[in-house]
Design a protein around this nucleic acid. Structure first.
Lengths: 130, 130
DNA sequence: TAACTGTACTATAATGCATAGTACGCATAA
DNA sequence: TTATGCGTACTATGCATTATAGTACAGTTA
């Protein structure tokens, strides 16, 4: 599914959270799709189940997962993404500082606009064929 | 100069690093300009001098500061920003995931392009962050 | 010399991360 | 019913990071 970088300064559970977010945002994981159980995911990544549980709880808090005891964990529908307003504010600030630093390091406006086109923004939708 | 958020989950020395980077990128601090001494900065922010020293060392490692023992710490010239290539790669990846998440949360292309226009592409301005 | 500067240590306390292990309630299939 | 797998909730331990306090030394400058 994805790999964990044990040498990274980023916490393992944060890496798990970010990887799942990427998969959901990219449309690889669809709403109401079941994700691997805490224990299975721990086996697959060879890390402790408690670490996966922490990541799943975090994903649930951020509105990307919902869990049913005894059944499993599932992908939320985008509309239910909690705290979107606050998160969007955070992302806009992050966008601003990222662009500013890129410019400071010599990136041209054209180069950044090109990056923008490569993000799938122009397509705007998730491919339904898979 | 700037404020530290003690309630933030981000480490104090990281906040100091980020704030100085913002000031340099925005052009508020010019190349070869002297920054407050480790001890003065610690007094101003009411935190430990060792924490400031750690931040200054980090800023030196990242190419934003240079220090002269007995004289003080100073702002580097942009061209000397070390490891730019690797950093640019990081920033582009961050740019990509930020835009993708903004789109996922419902931000329109126009809205993001408007954000782009508001950044320091033409001029520089400092802002608050958390 | 005196007062500054950066820098390098030691030591301590607090916090977060990841691990191991145990246990409980719920859902489903044999 | 029993067994299995699921999420969840604990306790406890080891480790790394962070922030603190204190001391010390070398270079710079008035």
């Amino acid at each position: 599914m994805f790999q964990i970088d044990l040498k990274s300064r980023k916490a393992i559970y944060e890496q798990v959270v970010d990887n799942f977010k990427e998969l959901i945002i990219a449309g690889v994981l669809k709403p109401d799709e079941k994700v691997p159980s805490v224990r299975d995911m721990a086996k697959e990544l060879t890390i402790n189940p408690n670490t996966i549980q922490k990541a799943y709880r975090e994903l649930e808090n951020r509105g990307y997962f919902y869990s049913v005891s005894g059944l499993g964990s599932f992908v939320s529908v985008p509309a239910e993404a909690a705290g979107s307003s606050h998160r969007i504010k955070e992302l806009k600030e992050l966008f601003r500082s990222t662009v500013n630093e890129l410019v400071f390091l010599g990136c041209s406006k054209e180069e950044i606009l090109k990056l923008m086109e490569e993000t799938g923004l122009s397509k705007g939708k998730v491919d339904e064929n898979d």
